[in-house]
Design a protein around this nucleic acid. Structure first.
Lengths: 215, 215
DNA sequence: TAGATTGTTAATCGATTAACAATC
DNA sequence: TAGATTGTTAATCGATTAACAATC
């Protein structure tokens, strides 16, 4: 029934967690009360076996002969993802992408609070994006400390990204959501999640040409 | 020396191709002429064996006793990724994210040409983002045909995403770069690459809490 | 030629799927 | 209780790493 000990969770499982969370959220909104691994599997296009294996990495959330309670499972996966905690974010680089992320993510994600943005461009200082103020970089360390910032969103040119990442690490940031077109080198206690948009577009390009070669 | 037959390339390999391309681009810019799998491996934090295996899915690009010519390998991986071809793009949804993507991606990626944007908001029609014009949705099919659009960037609310994807598929689009917070159902000949920003942020959140549990 | 390093086969490791006993 | 479906172990499949012969 339970299985949560100190085993390492595989990256493949972690990759799938947000997707489970997303589907369960939709089911919950639709008023679905219970779901079996078989039903969820046909919905998500994965095997029922994989769903049960994945979930059992974190504990037994289901009930034999019944299935899973949608609301409960959604809640529990939310906790596994850390959504019961609050996160305070800053955005490094208040250019087009930084501004868009503030606007795009701010209201969608309860629990992730954008607290400020930083940019070297003095003409942006004091201005607001959404209702987030842009500050000069020299205020960074103080701001991180005073506002308990744990996540920095990095939307800087690749030339500035590495130096800024190091400065963020030194200032005690916990995690970097990296949109810069480089792989960051940071101390092991700073966690990095990359969104390499160029890489993603290149993959799509590959698929197009690979498909054309084969058909 | 060669190995390119009709074997299926694994998704894991495809995932790594853009990263190889990126590192080789930097090496090339830095004037590095040749590199061995061993040198590249320590740079990229992967095994030399994996690099050689990955590359040999597509052919023998190296030379025994020498290594790989950086410029040549960069060029060849570029071709594998389809970067020798031109792609014409439209953006569906000219909101903050759509606008940011146009500005962010437009000048960085030769070969990917943004041709137009579409939005239901009449106040945007005729306006430009970067130098890209925003059109009303009723012009979509005609525009795709006339401009040989092959990729659509989808930055719409999830409620509209699926219907729009179907319309794009019917209009003959080849691929969708999907930023909407849903998994699209499209015919098998339409290729989809997802950028699920919320999922990515949730993964980062998981890592933070998992790290805190373990330390 | 000798040294270096690829291309490729074989061995290992990890992740997915299948099967089924446990149990609600 | 009988039926259903989980939790979990075992079997399979695929991906990564190691090893080495081929060869520049």
């Amino acid at each position: 029934m339970r299985a949560m000990d100190e085993r390492e969770i595989s990256p493949a499982v972690i990759d799938r967690l947000p997707r489970y969370f997303r589907y369960l959220g939709v089911l919950k909104e639709d008023g679905v009360e219970k779901i079996s691994s078989q039903e969820l599997s046909s919905l998500m296009n994965v095997t029922a076996s994989q769903i049960r294996q994945d979930l059992n990495n974190f504990g037994g959330f289901g009930q034999q002969g019944y299935g899973y309670n949608v609301e409960y499972l959604h809640e529990e996966i939310g906790k596994i993802l850390g959504l019961d905690k609050q996160h305070n974010l800053i955005v490094m680089g208040a250019g087009k992408l930084g501004q868009a992320l503030i606007n795009y993510m701010m209201y969608r994600n309860r629990g992730f609070l954008f607290k400020g943005a930083f940019d070297t461009d003095a003409s942006l200082w004091g201005r607001t994006v959404g209702d987030i103020r842009v500050f000069p970089p020299e205020k960074l360390e103080e701001f991180i400390r005073d506002n308990h910032i744990d996540i920095a969103v990095l939307t800087l040119p690749k030339t500035e990204a590495q130096a800024t990442a190091e400065r963020l690490a030194a200032a005690g940031i916990r995690a970097i959501w990296n949109f810069a077109h480089v792989d960051l080198k940071v101390p092991g206690n700073v966690l990095v999640e990359n969104v390499h948009l160029q890489d993603s577009l290149l993959k799509l390009s590959y698929k197009i040409h690979s498909y054309e070669r084969d058909n």
